[in-house]
Design a binder for these strands. Structure first.
Length: 467
DNA sequence: TGAAATGTTGGGGCG
DNA sequence: ACGCCCCAACATTTC
């Protein structure tokens, strides 16, 4: 029997993997392939931290396949060319994949499906990375939603998302073919090894452990998730980003907790809803990562200030909660969600710097930098996105710090210069009679920054109707 | 998934 | 005892 080619992309798992399951059930010997395609995505090829994750995740996937007697074939370059050559090399007559929803991926995959089908190759694609297809959740007149709450209500009125597929028994594989060596892809940092502080274990098994330990604490999620000094979030995002675990597996594991006391499970399911909402926004608005959804923002005059931007990136703005967040990001490849909102608001509003600059930095430094989430959320903070924060909503990083990191645990963990600052001043050390000499003064006066932002954004909001 | 300014209320001090 | 003022505490409005 001719082989089936399984093209892995953002579904680096064996469980609940409909494409893999379909290929296995076909009875054909399997060729499992991952292509590092940096050409198709253009600017949005995986950033540095995501590449670190990808390296380890591919390594884990290969080991899982090895346990089943197979291996993962690695190739690098334009996906279409590589697929064509492997189809020829192996004689495979069936090609399967799980769908990606980034606009460039949709274009590529649609073209390839037609091209290969025309050449007598059976091509099947599946949904492994969303609860529902973007086109399955629509308004009464069939349009995509622009506001989260009605989107969420519509999602909840659907039948339950499909149950995850049971784990596969045995797999059998086609003879081994040539593969790149993972180490030759240079996905890991070298010069400075900035990933040495990453406290993550990529891979499907680790994803499942993360889910299971999160479920033990999910009752506290509603309140604990806002406290960056606590470990109250699921930390599933990078696992989801590469599909080491699927949203349906998570949904059905969390659902039984949704009737217990406390809002934890419900609140968390809603976060999965935001993920779906972002995916839909990008699916229907291909310009989302690059252009403001609200066209009034197209001519907005952002400040260009390299010095301020560098201070933000490097976590030396002189505002403790901002610096703690930016340093957590650089050191661990991840930032607590509450602090993502605060740091993003500070960059956009207090510093007046373009949200795209922030978006690109997060893209490069986050291990969970999904295109849809990253773009939609930056635009949300900027006020140019869907269901966006109004322009006048400016986070005060001092108040946010006092509210959500009242003892300064989080700040002290990532900003050692402030370790000894008393609680009262931990979020505004410049008010100390003698501020720590090795910690910078604020690069912007918070009241002035807020004022400048309000003026600029107010002028913009009066310009013309939304586009 | 804000913050600050402004308005209102009501208890207590005090003449 | 009463009215006046002060000012938390809370609510509403505005940016």
């Amino acid at each position: 029997m001719k082989p089936a080619l399984v093209w892995f992309r953002q579904d680096l798992r064996l469980a609940d993997n409909p494409a893999l399951a379909f290929a296995a059930r076909s009875g054909r010997p399997l060729v499992c392939l991952y292509i590092l395609d940096d050409e198709t995505p253009g600017q949005w090829a995986w950033g540095g931290a995501a590449r670190w994750w990808l390296h380890h995740s591919l390594d884990r996937l290969d080991k899982s396949l090895t346990r089943h007697g197979g291996h993962l074939v690695l190739r690098r370059g334009d996906a279409g060319k590589i697929l064509a050559s492997i189809l020829k090399e192996t004689g495979a007559e069936l090609l399967v994949w799980n769908r990606c929803y980034e606009p460039f991926a949709v274009v590529r995959d649609t073209t390839l499906k037609k091209q290969f089908t025309d050449n007598e190759i059976a091509v099947e694609s599946f949904n492994a990375s969303l609860l529902f297809e973007p086109w399955e959740i629509a308004t009464k007149d069939g349009k995509p939603f622009r506001v989260f709450t009605p989107f969420w209500n519509a999602l909840r009125q659907q039948n339950e998302p499909g149950k995850p597929q049971a784990a596969l028994g045995s797999l059998h594989f086609a003879p081994r073919i040539k593969s790149d060596r993972l180490g030759d892809w240079d996905l890991l940092p070298t010069k400075p090894d900035w990933a040495k502080g990453f406290d993550w274990t990529p891979g499907e098994a680790s994803a499942r452990r993360a889910l299971s330990s999160f479920l033990d604490e999910i009752g506290n999620y509603a309140a604990a998730r806002d406290l960056p000094g606590k470990d109250g979030t699921s930390r599933l995002s990078p696992h989801l980003n590469f599909g080491e675990i699927g949203p349906r597996q998570i949904w059905h594991a969390v659902k039984p907790h949704a009737h217990a006391r406390g809002q934890g499970a419900q609140t968390f399911l809603k976060e999965l809803g935001w993920r779906e909402f972002c995916a839909q926004l990008l699916f229907y608005n291909s310009e989302l990562p690059d252009e403001p959804l609200d066209k009034r923002f197209a001519k907005f005059e952002w400040r260009r200030n390299k010095k301020d931007f560098d201070a933000w990136r490097q976590g030396r703005t002189g505002i403790p909660i901002i610096d703690a967040g930016m340093r957590q990001l650089w050191r661990t490849g991840w930032m607590h969600n509450r602090v993502r909102m605060i740091t993003a608001s500070f960059l956009i509003k207090h510093l007046g710097i373009h949200w795209k600059d922030g978006e690109e930095w997060f893209w490069d430094t986050l291990v969970d930098s999904g295109l849809a989430n990253n773009a939609a959320n930056w635009q949300w903070v900027a006020g140019s996105g869907a269901d966006a924060a109004p322009f006048f909503r400016v986070f005060n990083p001092v108040l946010q710090g006092e509210k959500f990191d009242p003892k300064g645990e989080y700040v002290r963990r990532f900003v050692p210069e402030l370790k000894k600052v008393p609680e009262k001043y931990i979020h505004q050390p410049w008010k100390l009679p003698e501020p720590p000499a090795n910690y910078p003064n604020p690069i912007v006066d918070l009241a002035q920054g807020r004022d400048r932002a309000l003026k600029a954004f107010k002028a913009l909001s009066q310009r013309q109707p939304k586009g």
